[in-house]
Nucleic acid binder design. Structure first.
Lengths: 339, 339
DNA sequence: CTGTTAGCGCATTCAC
DNA sequence: GTGAATGCGCTAACAG
């Protein structure tokens, strides 16, 4: 049978309230008594029922984390870092993995998270209705991707500036036909693809290059998508000499497509990614690095701070540093002929 | 203010019990009444408090998932698949990410999961004491890695056979000095590294090759570890001509080390991995593929089945198929000279 | 410092 | 088919 607080109380010869106070470290218990109670609890293998204690106290000691795809490197890494902060602070993590539109819809209409969590960290940007639903939870909210949302603490990066540095690098090398592999078609409503696209267009405009819609393809933020997108670009009458992929995973897909087409990187085509995936260095991919784990940690930290100070609103937006990393997948156009 | 079951009852003019029955689809409520109640609940935005309902019913509708590193591809992928099965069945997922020995110890001593979940899926193999702790939870248990554990439903692969196929491939190519990069030093107590090592030794024995302890290095199952391990192997007086890495991530680290040492793959050194990481195809890594997501799905499915049939014990061990995939990182030794 | 008294919000007996 | 009691295990006021 499961051991409850009264068992510990009886074993120690005190009341349940004293046991409760003692075990939670609340004041008003003599150290001697506390020690006895702790010992008895340990011996009996007692653990407080979270259901009962949250029903009584109103606090769940649980944080909800909403993720589009746990399996993807970026989200897995953010989650890993955030979970460590939460669990170190004594919170449990309730995970919601909303990859499919159905799962996502089910979640936001039924909102199974209501009354279950003390705060929510969303790794996907909710659309306006979803944001409203989350706000109706009436708990602190934070997010690590994309633009500001009222009521949310947001920890992010300068996506536009990052994209600019990547594309400017290509333009400076002399490329005039610069393709882009983005993830615009995803049903995620995050601002990341849009911001990165804006950076891309900014640099082209600066350089006096007329943007060509045919050079923008959709890679759905996956390796396979990136491969497909690159193939489309190569099928063009005038294929690009350089490609900016909005994520390293899509860039890796692009590299695969190029290899299949027997094109050399960077001699025939240059490729730049974004994120600095843990395997990008292995591959030698030029990219824009962002501090992924740090974003998860920071968002978690801010959420906990909000939890400690109940009448604090969301924290000010935090922008984490990014940096361009030159590796081996970029070179001047047709550098092959210059040898 | 938060809306409770009595609010819905008052709004409909019935008792709380009827609301409870109606909303959970239990018999004993007229369809007409049920419709009215459902409508009222929707309008008020009512969601049952999980704390209260699990306190009253004893069921939590929550599954605990224990993972060593959510950020790693293998575990993220398993988790992703399992979560989808659980949430589709109406269960929430409580995530415990136990990468560090401290987190792990904290978890198993305090067992915060007690009374919080209806079942546990462990993606790490608990050592005997930890297994005992989990069994004391008295809920169905499953795992997707490594060897059988009494009381656990296990879904896995033939690690030994997989390692054999990888190493045999190298031996058949003519390699006699075959190194191995493993993860034996990890404090994970899983049987995977041991089983894969056994496969490695079996093949060497079959081929009449004396195993050389110096050829076995530790890569800690990470890219960086693999790189370090490969460097150690290259520093040997007689470096190996081929390397079997127990995971693709370590193999990728090895590839990086080789590149830094200006050695060519597979001309100078052959490399085989294990897992078929999503980026292995991009890199052209020869490896042993295992159905990662399928293992998560299957384990989740079996756990739910056990939940449906309370007096069913753990399911019989399931062994998922693996297959050797020949790509571009392996060749006969010194093939360079044969050109 | 400690014990007593009330709920927290729901599910589950029983009556009717 | 529905309502009234009862209790799940704990926390939080309040006494003492």
């Amino acid at each position: 049978m499961t051991v409850s607080i009264t068992d510990v109380a009886e074993a120690t010869g005190v009341s349940a309230s004293t046991v409760s106070r003692a075990l939670r470290g609340r004041p008003g218990v003599s150290e001697e008594m506390r020690a006895r109670i702790v010992a008895a609890a340990a011996e009996l293998g007692y653990t407080a029922s979270r259901s009962a204690s949250s029903l009584a106290s109103g606090r769940t000691c649980t944080i909800g984390v909403v993720v589009p795809y746990v399996g993807r490197w970026f989200f897995g890494t953010v989650l890993d870092a955030a979970e460590k902060v939460f669990s170190a602070a004594g919170y449990d993590v309730l995970l919601y993995n909303l990859g499919s539109p159905e799962a996502r819809k089910r979640f936001f209409t039924k909102l199974p998270i209501r009354k279950r969590v003390d705060a929510v960290l969303s790794l996907l940007i909710p659309d306006p209705e979803e944001a409203t639903a989350l706000r109706s939870l009436d708990v602190p909210l934070a997010t690590t991707v994309g633009g500001a949302r009222p009521g949310f603490t947001v920890v992010g990066i300068d996506d536009r500036g990052g994209a600019e540095s990547a594309v400017r690098h290509l333009v400076n090398l002399g490329h005039r036909r610069v393709g882009m592999i983005s993830g615009a078609s995803e049903p995620l409503h995050w601002t990341t693809p849009l911001d990165r696209r804006r950076g891309y267009l900014d640099v082209l405009a600066d350089a006096g290059i007329e943007p060509d819609p045919a050079l923008e393809t959709d890679g759905a933020y996956t390796v396979e998508g990136g491969e497909r997108a690159m193939s489309e670009l190569l099928a063009l009458r005038h294929p690009p000499t350089a490609v900016f992929a909005q994520s390293d995973e899509m860039a890796m897909g692009a590299l695969r497509a190029l290899r299949r087409h027997r094109l050399r990187v960077p001699d025939d085509v240059s490729v730049v990614g974004f994120d600095d995936h843990e395997l990008s260095e292995v591959i030698g991919l030029t990219t824009v690095a962002q501090p992924v784990a740090a974003q998860g940690r920071e968002a978690a930290r801010l959420l906990l701070a909000q939890l400690d100070d109940p009448d604090a609103g969301p924290a000010d937006p935090v922008e984490m540093p990014i940096r361009f990393i030159l590796r081996e997948t970029t070179a001047p156009p047709h550098s092959r002929r210059q040898r």
